[in-house]
Design a protein around this nucleic acid. Sequence first.
DNA 1: CTCTGTGAACACATTCACAGCA
DNA 2: TGCTGTGAATGTGTTCACAGAG
Lengths: 204, 204
Amino acid sequence: MKYHKIPDETIRRMPLYVRALALLEQEGQETISSRQLAERLRLNPPQIRKDLSYFGAFGTRGIGYPVISTARRIRAILRLDVPQKAVLVGAGRLGTAIAVYPGFSVFGLEIAAIIDNNPTKIGSRVGRLEIEHIAAAATLKARGIRLGLLAVPAEAAQGCADVLVQAGVKGLLNLAPCCLDVPKQVKVVSIDMAMALGVLPYYV
Amino acid sequence: MKYHKIPDETIRRMPLYVRALALLEQEGQETISSRQLAERLRLNPPQIRKDLSYFGAFGTRGIGYPVISTARRIRAILRLDVPQKAVLVGAGRLGTAIAVYPGFSVFGLEIAAIIDNNPTKIGSRVGRLEIEHIAAAATLKARGIRLGLLAVPAEAAQGCADVLVQAGVKGLLNLAPCCLDVPKQVKVVSIDMAMALGVLPYYV
DNA sequence: CTCTGTGAACACATTCACAGCA
DNA sequence: TGCTGTGAATGTGTTCACAGAG
């Protein structure tokens, strides 16, 4: 395909493909057609073909896409072929739930540090990680941590974001119900569960 | 404005407006212009004006939008003017974090029941709610619960979804890393934190 | 003059239809 | 035949530019 700017929506779906392909690999399936994959993910087959074709030819005509190598290629596109470390800020209930969540590894993601500002929590363990003081942010860059998760109250989120950005963090997953002000080279994805739940009554 | 189908993206942003207006109300601000609101939410002013105009004229030219009544009208549009009850399935770490999260009330949402299949957990309390057995799903309809949150492992999610749909639940917020098969009159919103984090390395 | 409300223009994303390879 | 890869057509959502109200 000629040069095309890759749609953000395509990027957003890529981890979905990684997740599905990882499962297929576990099931021992070697190839999958866009039709089968679309059925699993409730997408349209041409959508999947176009998404993948933005990055070149992945499949074999008449057969489909090879499960293992397609997963590997998508991971490489998303820069998930190298382990990506993240710092989690906030060791409350949500924070600890995230810290022990095993689902990050499919994407090569690892929670490599936990930070909290509550002095009574510092030094205690969550899984195999020790909760650190916010001052430890200064060491993040040296430890190769460039992603951050904010699981703190809304009032604290902007301050934490500032500290992480200062510490060289380039991508933030914000779980607090607020918007963040960050330099534009820092990418923020926000998730607000209450907002997500809030749209449902409109549709039901 | 003449008849227009309202974009899904517009609906998705409406809770954002509710959240911002609730905060403004707390701050005592009586009106807000699309420009000011856009700055807070990092959107464009025309976007906000168009979103609101789909539902009629909310604002006063030269002044802006009245904070309180606009919030009330959006809540009514989203059916959040009547209290909406939800059942939470899964009383693990993520489930309990959600159960005690205070952020739902801004939207008139309430976690009104918690269900888990672990017999040792049944009867114990999370906040002021008692964890119930999955068999209690049969009582959901009578209790006016039409929304569900799934905070269970991926392997259990489809089964739980089936039970909830059977029990008359019309909207689901799925936090498990999988897709769900539901009748098309049931609306599903899925959140996968690992997937959301997984797109960040591409952008950084 | 300020700010809303909105048709029209534009940009972006999805779906179609089919050429081309296995 | 079965399935991918892709330009073209369609559909959806955003932004612009300005008319019109306060």
